[in-house]
Amino acid sequence: MSLTRGGDDAPIPVHGTVETIALPEETGTVRDIAPTDRGIVLLCDDGRILRRDTDSGRCTDVARTTVTVPADVEPWDDRVQTLRLHASRDGAFAAVVIDYGRTGEVLDLSTGRVTVPLENDGYQSDTMAFSLAFTEHAGRVVVLHRSEWNLVEATDAATGAQVARMPAADGDSPAWSDHFHGALHPSPAGTRIASDAWVWHPLGRPVVWNLDQWLTEGERAWSGDIGWAGLPACAYYWDRPLVWLDEDRLVLAGLGDDERELLPGARVFDLGRRGPGGAGATEEPPEIAAFGGPQGRFFAADGLLHSSSESGLEIWNPTTGTRLGALAGFRPTHHDLTRGELLELSAVGLRRLRIAAAEA
């Protein structure tokens, strides 16, 4: 199967074959997956956590979670509480959390032991995905998580020791203290992090700060310029597709500033061009491109934007806005960075497509 440039442009083939991988019958229903360097981690409906070896296809039990979605929870604005699986890039740790809920846990996949119990303060937690992401810093795996509605902590995944914390507001409220943090998106090399946050009234407003500086300097990093930047706000719209193209460029889904009038599309911002700001300063990074079309989940590879919607996969040049190709019926849900593949967790198993480099 091959992809070709859309529209009236001359075709440029982007070759790829979608392969379907059947999972062993004993896995039962798989709730979520997380690709790692050591294979794909699977969360089963009964709480088992399995690791699938990429070469042999064998699934091995490595842990079991006790996190469950509470019964009879009324969703806020159709945000249904759901179990979500995360895993560290090296495959040593996994986290199971409740999106739009309060609790979760980090597990050591070599022992099955819970190393970090997770709980946020519950304030407006039913409005946001559970803030959690893994990163590496100073030779250890660090888990980033929301402890209070406007505070993110960094914890050593192996020991549970605190690595860094956002400071609580003291005196005049700095710009960063009024954001309800949602899904966390570290940049590919972990130098920056974006939070899919919102602020009252409510406005969806993703924010970015220097992750490496924060993990190195701790709370005192917030007294100076920590690279804090806010992306344009959109009324009543968060939980939006967002992806880093590289350490500087961030792509945000949707054209417009109100959910009721939002159009499918992508906006590209350059955090590398952000000017200097003092402690607590808020600054919008320059928008370097905007174009219509992309919708659904966003992924990035080889400098290109990949969007996964109900119609299938589309590939875009994020500089020109040109659609380079489309593949109907393939709707990836995850990106396996180690093997350069997009994965779709489907009713028939795992479907995968190796992403080939293409001329933009």
Rank of each mutant, 00 (worst) to 15 (best):
N210R: 05
P264I: 01
P188V: 13
G254D: 06
A229V: 13
D248V: 08
L245V: 09
E217L: 06
A253P: 02
W200V: 15
G254P: 05
I226L: 11
H201E: 10
L203T: 11
R220W: 12
A266Y: 01
N210Q: 14
L252D: 05
P206D: 07
D248L: 04
R220Q: 14
W228R: 03
V208F: 00
A194R: 03
W209D: 03
D225A: 05
V199L: 14
C234G: 01
W228K: 03
E219N: 12
D246R: 05
A221E: 09
G204L: 00
W222R: 01
A197R: 01
V207R: 03
R240G: 08
G254R: 00
A189E: 14
R240D: 11
V251I: 10
A235H: 15
D225V: 06
D239T: 14
E261Q: 07
W222F: 08
N210A: 10
D196V: 06
G265R: 04
G218I: 12
G256K: 09
G224E: 13
L215G: 03
C234F: 05
T216K: 14
A266R: 00
L263Q: 11
C234E: 04
V251D: 03
E259A: 08
D212M: 00
L231K: 06
Q213N: 10
W209E: 02
G256Y: 08
D239R: 13
N210V: 08
D257I: 10
E247L: 00
P206A: 02
E219L: 05
G256I: 07
D248F: 06
W200P: 11
W214K: 01
P202W: 14
A235C: 09
T191M: 06
E259M: 05
Y236L: 07
R205M: 10
L262E: 06
W214F: 11
V207I: 15
A233L: 09
G218M: 04
D248G: 02
A266D: 07
A197M: 06
L245Y: 04
P241Q: 13
D246L: 06
G265H: 08
H201K: 14
Y236G: 02
L252Q: 12
P202I: 15
G230F: 09
C234L: 10
E217N: 11
L245W: 04
R192C: 01
D246H: 12
E247Q: 10
G230P: 15
A221Q: 05
S195Y: 05
W214L: 02
W228C: 01
S223T: 13
L242H: 08
Y237K: 06
L215Q: 04
G227D: 09
W244Y: 07
E261T: 14
V199T: 15
R205K: 14
L250I: 07
D258K: 09
W198P: 00
G254K: 01
A189C: 13
I193E: 11
G256P: 11
L215E: 04
L252Y: 09
E261L: 02
L252E: 05
G190H: 07
